[in-house]
Write a protein that binds this DNA or RNA. Structure first.
Lengths: 194, 194
DNA sequence: ATTACATCATAACAGTTGTTATGCTTCTAA
DNA sequence: TTAGAAGCATAACAACTGTTATGATGTAAT
């Protein structure tokens, strides 16, 4: 097992502790214990706690983006955008964990300007991805021509954020079908006339 | 100045520290310092830290609900629902602070089941309020008859949550007009035909 | 075989945390 | 006037924090 693999194991241990105990109670010792090792392992693979924490978050973001890209590969048109959004939602119970980590980080970033700025970059990145999708749809005349695409991209992000928040807090209020229905309604409102 | 007033002052000091430093760095000593006093004041008005923290959050929730009720008083129909939603949004820069506290708490609740349950109750409360508004609109035939009102209430909550998250992270991406536009689009989609 | 490095354990460090106890005022009611 | 409570300050407590240093392994290259 290589260096990067072991590093990932440490991050995944941190990931589990964050979900189970909360981000502010995710101490070096708790991570080491979750890993079944000592803190020496943790400090060996990560310069400090922040580097470890941010790496764990980056894994969550990357897997989600990869899932979105995978869903986009085989599809075209409105259906393609719709399934990209679906890929980001916590449709299955197992998807909720990643969103818990994400929300823990959002709250943890309040009062920490440099973490807020990192989130801004992530939002900008996903916004550009969605903007490109919307622009392609608009060029193909599949959605209305009078749309502010940046605003609509932000609206899609807000839609996903809002649904995911609802799922994490009240899972019984958002079945997979209901989540998909809300996204479907939202997206198909883009292609009808003003 | 009465007991309750002083108690509120302590909570407001905590409120300011949460926004400035983050929830996990909001210590008893930091709150006391923000208040210009000693920790003796804090412990005198609150049994422990959790009671203080939760009281501060409750103030945020109450002021928002009060603002929504106030906007509802003078209006009727679709316009009434729309302005209730507006009242919950961070339209002004000064409104962002309350949402920062809210988001800090959401993240802080990850891994703390009893805090999640408290959030569930809050969501249930606001959902019932919105459900009643939607039911009234449906009875007056102002919105479609085939809507699942519970789902639509959850959708409205998700809309506000998502927009507010976007505002806290990327304020420059959501002007007051854009926020209102998104809510307007969402709500007016309820009254057209399927 | 010896050197060097990667991996990990252990322990100590100084700082911060929530909580509690104690005591000092100031005010109020008997 | 006096007893007592309210309001607040101070200090101490043990527990926990991230970080760092040190040393013990094993492994691979010279």
């Amino acid at each position: 097992m290589g260096y990067d693999d072991r590093r990932l194991e440490v991050a995944q241990a941190a990931w589990r502790v964050i979900i189970r105990e909360g981000l502010d109670r995710t101490s070096m010792r708790a991570i080491a214990q979750e890993l079944g090792s000592s803190t020496g392992v943790v400090t060996h693979y990560f310069r400090d706690k922040e580097e470890l924490i941010l790496f764990a978050l980056e894994q969550v973001v990357e897997t989600t983006l990869k899932s979105m890209r995978f869903c986009a590969e085989t599809r075209q048109g409105i259906d393609r955008l719709e399934h990209m959004i679906f890929a980001a939602l916590p449709l299955q119970e197992s998807d909720r964990a990643d969103w818990k980590v994400w929300m823990a980080f959002l709250g943890y970033s309040i009062g920490r300007e440099h973490l807020i700025q990192q989130h801004q970059k992530r939002y900008t990145h996903i916004r550009q991805i969605l903007y490109q999708e919307l622009a392609d749809l608009q060029a193909a005349k599949l959605i209305r021509a009078d749309l502010d695409l940046t605003l609509e991209a932000n609206s899609l992000i807000a839609l996903v954020d809002g649904i995911a928040t609802g799922v994490v807090i009240c899972p019984e209020q958002f079945s997979a079908e209901q989540q998909q229905y809300l996204v479907h309604q939202h997206i198909h409102a883009l292609q009808t006339l003003p």
